[in-house]
Design a protein around this nucleic acid. Sequence first.
DNA 1: AGGAGATATCTGCATCTGCAGATATTTTTT
DNA 2: AAAAAATATCTGCAGATGCAGATATCTCCT
Lengths: 147, 147
Amino acid sequence: MAFDLQAYLPYLLNRAARRIVAGFTDQIRPLGVGLSEWRVLAALLESDAARIDVLALATSIDASTLSRLVQRMAAEGLVTRTVSESDRRAVAIALSTQGRALAEQIVPIALEWEAKMLGSLDDATTERLRQLLRQLDQNLAPHEATS
Amino acid sequence: MAFDLQAYLPYLLNRAARRIVAGFTDQIRPLGVGLSEWRVLAALLESDAARIDVLALATSIDASTLSRLVQRMAAEGLVTRTVSESDRRAVAIALSTQGRALAEQIVPIALEWEAKMLGSLDDATTERLRQLLRQLDQNLAPHEATS
DNA sequence: AGGAGATATCTGCATCTGCAGATATTTTTT
DNA sequence: AAAAAATATCTGCAGATGCAGATATCTCCT
């Protein structure tokens, strides 16, 4: 049976993904955050006061996981949790001053790792890669409800 | 602070990877195997009677995880575990008849998902992608011991 | 041969994660 | 307005995973 795991694209994709997660995570651990925390911080840098479900979408983290994560981050003083006025089921998550400082401290590290991952690829290739990854993601999207 | 998580390559890489894992895993679950089991089966299709550490390298699964995984797969009758003659620390893992049949049953499903992921990309682009992913992986490799 | 160090695997443990099912609140139906 | 359905978050649970530290065996040096 002909099957070459080492040439199988989903495997290669996973391998590269795990690799960068491992390296980056190691580097930010001393700052007291893991990958998921960083994703939340990064997402909040863009749109502050986001709800859990919005954050879940932005970070690709499951809402239940995110719920617990955000609780811990709030306890650590990185974010604030405020019950929404208009919808008391919802919680608005925002960066605290400390959280923002931490996020801004990590951004350059994240960019370093992106650069390290890309190595000597030129800008055009990088852009092509970004486009390809988005395409793959879209091809795999649960279902295109062409409503 | 300018940072766009949605354009950040490591994130995109992870997202695509998780997506295909989720879909593929869902599809093979009825067969009683998860992603890791499949990786082991696939690796064994190529080089039978591999040791744990070799399998760990081939599948990117941690040796301790793999140890437990292989024990379970042996209990399920998918693989055989044989203490090596020449080195009694080592264990040779091989596909059982049943394991091989299962592996060969999954191969076409795996290829389907690869195709689904690639969508309408032509062969040249696919090959380019494969090359890029390998490049990224190499750029991130722990350390190039150019011994 | 005897011991130090390397190697292969296994076990303990602590964490992360996601699904399924609660709970609380809002919106839509009737 | 009451009931039904939808929505946002949270909790219970059970499995996967990886690191660190055992354990067993082998290799090399003296």
